[in-house]
Amino acid sequence: MKNPIGNLNKIFDSRIRMGVMSVLLVNDEVNFNDLKQLLELTDGNLASHLTNLEENGYIKIHKGFIGRKTNTTYSITKAGQKAFTEHLEALENMIKNVK
């Protein structure tokens, strides 16, 4: 039998990165402040995790403006969708194997 733990994605071990991916999987586009509010985080904490996810190609960053204020929004990439869904399946399999 295949080892189910092998499919778990190390990148999503962090609760914050897992939270970001969960939010972005069900929403087309979410801006920085909304993400911060949803995940109950501070600026610096969230920013580093977002950079990490972007470097892995799981999320896209879009810098825009609302009037003069910058409005940075984030969305999930195809690769991110695939990786996170696989991670979810791996988690589910682990639970199924116990039963």
Binding site: G19, S22, V23, L38
Partner: peptide
């Protein structure tokens, strides 16, 4: 947690 975040954000 994932389920909770998805629900809370949608």
């Amino acid at each position: 947690d994932i389920k909770k975040m998805m629900e809370r954000s949608s």
